[in-house]
């Protein structure tokens, strides 16, 4: 979806404000929304791509105003409703009202959480190790010019541009379908290098580049005429 989350290459947002000695959290509710989200969702309600899709659906004007953890709150409230974990009334009152129905799973135990925070998580990766790669390292590609209304991880600034495969990272699920209930599409993901001049024109530094991770479905082989 071509919404405001796809920020790469935009202008006019001003300087980068660095806060010296910034604390991990500024307010207590920030700790809590992180802990609620990470403590709830690994029970199996939704995957990371569904979460990102939900965040991207925040109204653009609100997205730009919201602090980072406010986006987490808006995302969690939406997921709780979408997945029928809580009712609107329960979200608003903070009280348990519905006693039957809904998707309510056992809470993630602390031991499982401790493990997840210190050990490799399979998540949506490393599937089908035998799946054949569509592209080879060194191959020139064309990033597809696609503008889907659904979730995608190919940003606008890359679309239609020529790049070179620099590394094959193995097989991951395509976010586009994984964010919308499937079907699962395991594909190779590659680091692809684009020159700064290909992306931004002749005024860019001729030495500079951007590397980005792209799935098989986001690229076509570059056919030279």
């Amino acid at each position: 979806m071509n919404s405001i989350h796809d920020l790469g290459g935009m202008d006019n947002f001003g300087p980068i404000n660095v806060e010296p000695n910034e604390p991990v959290f500024h307010e207590d509710w920030e700790r809590k929304i992180l802990a609620l989200t990470l403590g709830l969702l690994p029970a199996g309600y939704c995957n990371i791509d569904e979460m990102r899709r939900t965040t991207e659906h925040i109204d653009p004007a609100i997205y730009l105003q919201a602090r980072y953890y406010q986006k987490w709150l808006l995302t969690l409230e939406s997921i709780l409703l979408e997945k029928d974990i809580l009712t609107q009334e329960e979200i608003e009152t903070g009280k348990s009202i519905r006693t039957e129905g809904g998707d309510n799973r056992p809470a993630v135990p602390v031991e499982m959480m401790q493990y997840a925070m210190a050990n490799p998580i399979p998540a949506n990766a490393e599937l089908d190790p035998d799946l054949k790669a569509k592209f080879q390292v060194g191959e020139e590609i064309l990033a597809k010019n696609i503008n889907p209304y659904h979730h995608t991880r190919i940003p606008r600034y890359i679309r239609g541009k020529r790049g070179v495969i620099v590394q094959d990272h193995g097989v991951f699920l395509l976010a586009d379908t994984n964010a919308h209930g499937g079907p699962e599409k395991p594909q190779h993901v590659y680091s692809v290098r684009f020159t700064a001049q290909e992306l931004w024109g002749d005024e860019a530094n001729p030495n500079d580049s951007v590397c980005i991770d792209l799935h098989d479905d986001y690229m076509d082989p570059l056919v030279s005429n």
Binding site: P155, H169, V189, N207, D208, D213
Partner: peptide
């Protein structure tokens, strides 16, 4: 100017 500035956009799971 001679150094390549290479930006990594971590848009997938890496």
């Amino acid at each position: 100017e001679d150094v390549e500035v290479r930006v990594w956009d971590s848009n997938a799971e890496l």
